[in-house]
Design a protein around this nucleic acid. Structure first.
Length: 557
RNA sequence: GUCCCUGUAGCUCAGCGGAAAGAGCGACUGCCUUCUAAGCAGUGGGUCGGGGGUUCGAAUCCCUCCAGGGACGCCA
């Protein structure tokens, strides 16, 4: 339709109905008022100034020149200068058949054209359990990845494991201290260590897994006497990390979040990416040495300060390994696009990461970073402080067990990533029976129940004639179902999966409304057949939407 | 001090240049002898943080002020 408008403009120009001028992008919108048709353009209003003409006059001349496509019933002009398109109802009703034909594929598009895109998310240090805020990133990432996959992108979902660096070191030392304490030995926790109770539990588990107290105690004594303390600390630490990683994985699975790839930070040092990326930067003159450390001279790229790559003790910073990681993503694995989802505490890392990607000779546009804002927890009036180091936190697992995976997903998907969330556990639990989550799922269950009844009564509606669908609630439902591909396109272009949950609610509302007004299974056999087809198509669209959100579509409730 | 996010109905939040400002929850009124009332229909509720500006048109863009959160480390 946009193209038709464009053609009409050039036609108008060639007939001197419009002066020659450059066209603004021709955009179509969906009017909120149904009287304004299905699609609308405000092009005449936008052209009016440059053309020095009355927008209504422009609108009328464009409409007179426009070629009506098959599905469009009429094109109308509305003041102050809109052009409104209305779809033909027979075209609409035919789409029901089309949705049924496409089934689970309905809504899928080929926007990506097979482009390789990596979505990296969660990527929490394996030093302790995931908390609620991590769940937000997890759901954002997995939903985005699913929608990208449904729109023609080749997607890799990846978790970056920070298994190197100083945080890991602190974890190893904390765990070692806890193990010693567990065995009745005198040991001090490092001051920057992890003090959560989970670490004490982990120490117990590890001792158990290594054959019990006596065995580990003698191992330790031997190590101490032979000066191999470091080795045993590392060994216990690695075991601890494996266990933490394992529980992170299972917590995420509980939420329906899975990964294609678990990528080790350490491997960047073992396999040379770190070295190659640093050499690249050095050769291109992006590094300098001062105060005994190696710096990335981001100031030459317009950043407000430089950043350390290699500390004066020779150890690489987190920034340096992240550079190696992105070197690997773009230059070695050849992703066309990389989407990273980070928590708000990494916000300061965004611009320097973009700068360094540019320094690696990659268009920084290919790196997109979504910052998911903080989640603060409440139980009624009481705020819950979340701090991993002091160990006071509500874990993701506790949350999922309390409110359920579907409700969690829907809740997180109902807010845009850049608004801070106030998560009231009490409310989430109390409302769970009258939640929007159930509102949407209930629509699906209702449909399932209608289809079950049809089956019981052995109604064969395979030859149902959808052109009999002429009532307003029926056509409204079809129009709503046809919006799914547009919503998916919007999610992909804005990288904002929350549009899905709002669409899901609207779709459910439209269905519930139809359900109240139109009896599906009735004496009128022909109409029953047509409506059963419509209802089945609605089930397809609802299930697809829920599926993209990673939620279940229950047959009964 | 600098940078990022946010300020919309009593609460939690959508809308982010278009044609009466929306949803859920909460409040109030109706609707179950027919496919699931976890539903529907309706009522009430808003200086879209304040003030300037740009525009035919601003909750939406720009400037400024105020408020809340976050980031500014040789932590990650």
């Amino acid at each position: 339709m946009a193209r038709l408008l464009q053609e009409a403009v050039s036609e108008a120009q060639s007939r001197n109905l419009l002066p020659p001028l450059t066209l603004p992008p021709v955009l179509l919108e969906r009017p909120q008022n149904p009287e304004h048709g299905d699609y609308a353009s405000s092009l005449p209003l936008k052209l009016a100034r440059a053309a020095r003409m009355d927008p209504m006059t422009i609108a009328h001349s464009l409409v007179s020149l426009i070629q009506l496509p098959k599905g469009v019933e009429k094109v109308a002009v509305a003041p102050p200068g809109f052009i409104n398109f209305s779809l033909r109802s027979d075209w609409l009703t035919r789409q029901v058949e089309e949705i049924l034909r496409r089934g689970e594929e309905y809504g899928n598009l080929d926007l990506g054209k097979g482009m390789k895109v990596q979505v990296e998310f969660v990527s929490v240090n394996p030093t302790g359990p995931l908390h609620v805020g991590h769940g937000r990133g997890a759901i954002l990432g997995s939903t985005l990845a699913d929608v990208l996959a449904a729109t023609g992108y080749e997607v890799v979902k990846e978790y970056y494991i920070n298994d190197a660096g100083s945080q890991m070191d602190a974890f190893y030392r904390s765990l070692y201290a806890r193990c010693q304490q567990e065995l009745g030995l005198e040991a001090h926790m490092p001051s920057e260590g992890y003090f959560g109770k989970y670490l004490t539990d982990l120490a117990k588990e590890i001792i158990e897994a290594r054959g019990g107290r006596e065995k580990v105690l003698s191992e330790l004594r031997r190590a101490l006497s032979t000066g191999a303390e470091g080795a045993i600390q590392d060994e216990l630490g690695r075991m601890g990390m494996e266990k933490v990683l394992h529980s992170i994985k299972s917590d995420l699975e509980l939420l329906g979040v899975t990964f294609d790839q678990w990528f080790s930070e350490q491997s960047l040092f073992d396999q040379g990416q770190y070295h190659r990326a640093m050499s690249w930067l050095r050769e291109k003159g992006y590094t300098s040495e001062k105060e005994g450390a190696v710096w990335f001279v981001s100031t030459t790229l317009g950043e407000d300060k430089d950043n350390v790559l290699v500390r004066s003790d020779g150890s690489p910073t987190y920034f340096a390994s992240d550079i190696a990681y992105h070197y690997n993503k773009f230059l070695e694995r050849g992703f066309d696009r990389v989407i990273n989802i980070w928590g708000a505490d990494h916000q300061g890392h965004v611009s320097r990461m973009k700068a360094v990607v540019g320094a690696l000779g990659i268009d920084p546009e290919r790196l997109q970073i979504i910052i998911s804002q903080m989640v603060s927890l409440r139980r009624g009036e009481e705020m819950i402080k979340v701090s991993k180091r002091t160990g006071e936190l509500v874990t993701l697992r506790e949350l999922v067990e309390e409110v359920g995976a579907d409700a969690c997903r829907f809740f997180f998907l109902s807010r845009s990533a850049n608004s801070q969330m106030d998560f009231d556990l009490e409310l989430a639990k109390r409302q769970s029976a009258e939640n929007p989550v159930y509102y949407v799922q209930y629509a699906h269950a209702r449909i399932a129940s209608i289809l079950r009844l049809a089956e019981e009564r052995k109604i064969d509606y395979s030859r149902g004639d959808t052109s009999l669908l002429t009532a307003e609630p029926e056509l409204t439902l079809i129009r709503r179902m046809l919006q799914l591909p547009e919503v998916m396109e919007m999610v992909v272009s804005t990288l904002e999966p929350h549009h899905l949950s709002f669409y899901a609610t609207e779709l459910a509302t439209t269905f519930h409304n139809f359900y109240e007004k139109c009896r599906v299974i009735s004496q009128d056999e022909a109409l029953t057949g047509a409506r059963l087809k419509l209802v089945e198509a609605a089930k397809v669209v609802l299930a697809k939407t829920l599926g993209l959100m990673g939620m279940s579509a229950p047959e009964r409730m």
